[in-house]
Design a protein around this nucleic acid. Structure first.
Lengths: 244, 244
DNA sequence: TTTACATAGTGTATTATTTACGCATTATAA
DNA sequence: TTATAATGCGTAAATAATACACTATGTAAA
């Protein structure tokens, strides 16, 4: 029997993009009163789990993601470790732990990961629990410090997306320039000029035009592009320029 | 008596700048054979310690730094958590733990912080252990995975220094533009044009010229400048521009 | 069949920023 | 007095960012 580490967990902030909004995948935490059946607790958590004694952090995060989405090969990055003494000590959280009688210590520290996935093709699955995508502009009530963790993840995502081409992880293999623009707009929370955005994108050698157009759209169909990590790696030497 | 968490620690990558090189502060790990007196282990670690059960991560890192440098109010930032199953399991490390008979579990995870301090004024102190600054270009043999941790810290520092004005934390309150340039050059590992660097710096409102010049230098004395965090915060709204 | 609508795609002029240098200035030391 | 080693100022050219006008191509409604 594999043993778990009692005081450490991983939590995944799973970001998804559906061509409209930046979304985050959350899991419902629910506790009903045994007698009345009325809900005592009803809020939302990040996807998380304990870590096995013989399991690296990245492996644990990958496992959590696989269980929830069925997907392998997803972009995953550790972004921060959360260990405030009182991070799981609100009255609600205490009730939760008491009823569930879990064998955890008082203080659980958690390693935060963010995942980037294409929101249009994923099917969610987690038998026992309710799982749902939320736009980052309409978030529900959170369990534990998971709202705080999500905020930190967003901050890191925003900082990173300005320096590294990780946005493409949120798009399907084929995408249009408008879709890419919309993605950057919802992540960074600002608008770009359509024509200038396109100009900038077209001069990036690692965004490659395909001989294929959109179908089933009720307007002029746009050309598809794809992102090449290989081409990026070949040209990235000139990066790291944004000094001071 | 304050209890410690047995399987979690903090490690601080303490960067210092002496106007010449970027340095890192390391603590010697030494073990001599009881009979022959010959050294069995002689390598270097980051400054680290356990975490108390009622102590937040940031507090623990601050405590480690305070003990070593005597300084408060130092720039400190958590950059990564290290928890690979075998991170402290090399033959050398096993001997170390065995001899020291410490009450730690097999797998210790550590929260990595980097600290930025002005290397010219700090006095080191740690009675029992040998403590030393090393230029990042001439590093010694490391204990555990501390070489890996340092590498990750450098990577994060390089990424961050390009987006946020954290370099000033490595300089004394008064500094010349050449000193600032040298700092950026040793961090990023590349040269800048002296005149263009100056021009760029001068247009930053938060780098403020002082009515004071260098003394005791054997050339034309340079003007001193200072960095204002307040002015930066007032003007930073326009930032986050480096999209895509 | 025509027209309205929505989004795709092209171009150009202006301004701002980055890059590449030339040269004078001011201190020390020989 | 002169060599030397930095500081400090300025300017021209190349490159990138910004602002904005117009045409093209598909669907759907009149």
């Amino acid at each position: 029997m594999r043993k778990i580490i009692p005081n450490i967990s991983v939590d995944c902030v799973i970001f998804g993009f559906d061509f409209k909004q930046l979304n985050v995948l959350l899991v419902e935490r629910k506790l009903d009163d045994e007698k009345t059946g009325k809900p005592i607790i009803k809020d939302w958590t990040l996807a998380g789990n304990h870590i096995f004694e013989d399991e690296d952090f990245d492996k644990a995060a990958t496992r959590v993601l696989k269980k929830l989405s069925g997907l392998d090969n997803i972009f995953l990055e550790q972004f921060y470790a959360f260990g405030a003494v009182k991070r799981t000590n609100s009255p609600k959280d205490k009730i939760w732990f008491k009823k569930r009688n879990e064998g955890f210590s008082d203080r659980i520290i958690t390693i935060g990961y963010f995942a980037l996935i294409d929101n249009t093709t994923v099917t969610l699955s987690l038998k026992e629990r309710n799982v749902k995508w939320f736009p980052i502009t309409e978030l529900p009530e959170f369990a534990f410090d998971h709202g705080f963790i999500l905020g930190k993840a967003l901050e890191k995502l925003r900082a990173k997306v300005g320096t590294y081409p990780i946005g493409f992880e949120l798009l399907p293999e084929k995408f249009t320039i408008s879709q890419l623009q919309r993605l950057y707009e919802v992540i960074l929370g600002k608008k770009f000029d359509r024509r200038n955005f396109r100009k900038k994108v077209l001069q990036m050698k690692y965004i490659i035009p395909l001989n294929e157009k959109q179908k089933d759209v009720k307007h002029k169909p746009a050309q598809y592009f794809t992102y090449s990590k290989e081409v990026y790696n070949l040209t990235k030497l000139e990066r790291f320029d944004n000094s001071i």
